[in-house]
Design a protein around this nucleic acid. Structure first.
Length: 593
RNA sequence: GCGCCCGUAGCUCAGUUGGAUAGAGCAGCUGCCUUCUAAGCAGCGGGUCGCGGGUUCGAGUCCUGCCGGGCGCGCCA
């Protein structure tokens, strides 16, 4: 329909102004119903070039407008030069039929044109359970992926597991201590190790499955006096984690010697722990209705020599150099404000190298576009990553980083501090015992990604009014209830409604509701294009509101057979739209409440 | 210090890339259940869009300078 408007408009324009870039010309739905169903600012944009008053142009355009064969009833010039289009009444009936015909596919659009997109999100470190912050990332990432799918992209969801490097070694060290403690030995966590209680269970499991016979007899490398080699700074901080861990342990001050047997033992312990922790993360995310197409392990990239390859390619391309005993990338040539170390003086890779290798891998898998969701505390990282990828010859514009703002939990009007050190770390699994998945997903989706989010536990838990999730679900349940009654009364339901006399929908609440339902495809397209999944919550509320208003003003099951059939058709269309938009959000559409 | 984000009703936030009279929920007040779910509907009150300049037919939106809050600037990950 908007295409028809475009064509009509251009046909009118041509007689007046010559080629004009239509970039700033748009057609939109006016906020005020007085201003028609659609409006365009074309005349005002053209005014300067045509050196003519906007109203004069608008009037000329309207005179030349040929709307035969379109849904346009008439066009009016208004205000400073807006052209307002009023549609024929029949378009409302057409809209209802279109929804019923498309069913579960209603709202899908083709703006993605089949392009392949990889959305990487959560990617929390495999060193502990997921926290509440990950729940926001999971909801936003998953729904962004769904929105993109509805917009015609081919989407894969991926979770990057940082199961290599120093932090994993620290995990092994913490495991070693927990194992010793299980064996009744007096052991203390080294500085920088993970203090979490969860490792106690995992240590117990390890002993149950493997015993401790292969444990090296030497004292722990961080406890001894004769430290040989300088250990790398070991702050097992957030990694590509979603952030929110503000009280990570400090880096160890003592030296740490490297004993091969001990390193191997730590490696075994760490691998065991990572496996358990990742399995736990997978279970929690599945409960949260987030399914990843792939859990990509950093160790895969490492094993394939990815990091070495990246450094080699950069050297070869002349973008890497040596200084101060380290290897650097000349990222300043690609927009970074300083060069970055690739290979540390001790021979280890900095975090970015395997990460670049991972992104090279993504490109090699044929994706047209990459989207990463990162915590706000990682801001600035994208400059480095893009610089490195550009240096390797990839298009940095194909990588898109979305930063998610912080989450604050609120209970009883008070902020719940999320702090590991103070023992108030809120695990996602515990969080989901308190809040339903539906409510959690909704509340995390509600805000735009670059807005901080206060999660009100009291409100999300409310099973009564005030809770927006229930408001929307209630609308769906109400419709289902109507259909139960209709069916019992032998009225037409399901397929039979396709032939309903929907032109009988003439009451204002009915028309308002239809207009809202007709917006779903546009909403999907906008949400996908602008990466704004939070639009879906807003839209769902508007649909629900439109329905509740219709419901109280227009009796569905009435005396007039034709009106009843038409209203049932409207109910069916509304139920379909609600079901579809809830499906996009991964929230249930209950049949009764 | 440099960079980025945020600042809109008492509170939490929308605001369709610069459009017409700035919206919603919560909180407050007033009405509406003999019939399809009142987990609902209708209405009232509530604003210097942080402050000052600028750009233009037109600014919450763009530019600029301040003010306030947050985050980032490691041979950490």
């Amino acid at each position: 329909m908007s295409e028809a408007l475009q064509r009509a408009r251009f046909a009118g324009d041509l007689s007046l102004a010559r080629d004009v870039a239509p970039a700033e010309i748009y057609v939109e739905r006016p906020k005020d119903r007085q201003h028609g169903d659609w409006a365009t600012n074309a005349a005002m944009v053209l005014a300067r070039e045509a050196r003519t008053a906007p109203r004069q142009i608008a009037e000329a355009v309207v005179r030349h407008l040929d709307s035969t064969g379109t849904l346009v009833e008439r066009a009016e010039v208004a205000g400073p030069g807006f052209i307002n289009f009023f549609l024929k009444e029949t378009w409302l009936a057409e809209a209802v039929r279109a929804i019923l015909n498309s069913g579960p596919d209603y709202g899908k659009v083709e703006s993605g044109r089949g392009r392949r997109v990889l959305v990487e999100f959560v990617s929390a470190n495999p060193t502990g359970p997921l926290n509440v912050v990950s729940a926001r990332h999971a909801a936003v990432g998953d729904v962004l992926a769904r929105v993109l799918e509805w917009a015609g992209f081919i989407v894969d969801r991926e979770f990057y597991v940082n199961d290599a490097g120093n932090q994993v070694r620290m995990l092994g060290a913490a495991m070693d201590v927990r194992v010793r403690q299980q064996l009744g030995e007096n052991a203390e966590l080294p500085e920088g190790a993970y203090p979490g209680e969860y490792l106690i269970d995992i240590a117990r499991q390890y002993l149950a499955e493997h015993g401790a016979d292969d444990r090296p007899q030497a004292p722990a490398p961080w406890a001894g006096e004769g430290a040989g080699q300088v250990a790398p700074a070991a702050q097992p901080a957030a990694g590509q984690d979603s952030g929110g861990e503000d009280d990570e342990p400090a880096a160890p001050s003592q030296k740490w010697r490297r004993d091969p047997a001990y390193e191997a033992w730590l490696e075994r312990l760490a691998r065991f722990a990572v496996e358990r922790i990742v399995a736990e993360q997978q279970a929690v995310l599945r409960e949260y209705r987030v399914e990843f197409d792939r859990w990509f392990h950093e160790s895969e990239v490492r094993a394939a020599g990815g990091p070495e390859n990246v450094v080699e390619r950069l050297r070869h391309a002349g973008h890497a150099y040596e200084a101060d005993g380290a290897v650097w990338i000349r990222s300043t040539s690609f927009g970074d404000d300083k060069d970055r170390v690739l290979v540390k003086r001790d021979g280890g890779f900095t975090y970015i190298v395997p990460d670049v290798a991972y992104h090279v891998n993504k490109f090699e898998r044929g994706y047209d576009h990459l989207i990463n969701l990162l915590g706000r505390d990682h801001y600035g990282y994208h400059v480095r990553l893009k610089a490195a990828l550009a240096a390797l010859g990839y298009d940095p514009a194909a990588l898109e980083i979305i930063y998610l703002q912080m989450v604050h939990l609120v209970r009883g009007g008070q902020e719940v501090r999320m702090s590991k050190r103070r023992g108030e770390f809120v695990a996602m699994a515990d969080f989901l015992k308190e809040v339903s998945v539906d409510a959690a997903r909704w509340f995390f989706l509600m805000r735009s990604t670059d807005s901080e989010l206060d999660f009100d536990l009291d409100l999300a838990n409310m099973q009564t009014s005030d809770n927006p999730v229930y408001y929307v679900q209630y609308a769906h349940a109400r419709i289902c209830s109507i259909f139960r009654q209709a069916q019992a009364a032998g009225l037409p339901v399901g397929e039979a409604l396709r032939g309903a006399p929907v032109e009988k929908l003439t009451e204002e609440p009915e028309r308002e509701l239809v207009r809202k339902l007709a917006e779903l495809p546009d909403e999907v397209e906008l949400a996908a294009e602008r990466r704004e999944p939070h639009r879906m919550t807003r839209y769902a509320l508007e649909v629900a509101s439109g329905f509740h208003s219709f419901y109280t003003h227009c009796r569905v099951l009435g005396d007039d057979e034709a009106v009843t059939a038409a209203r049932l058709a409207l109910c069916a269309a509304t139920r379909q739209v609600l079901a579809n938009v809830l499906a996009i959000m991964g929230i249930r559409a209950p049949e009764e409440m």
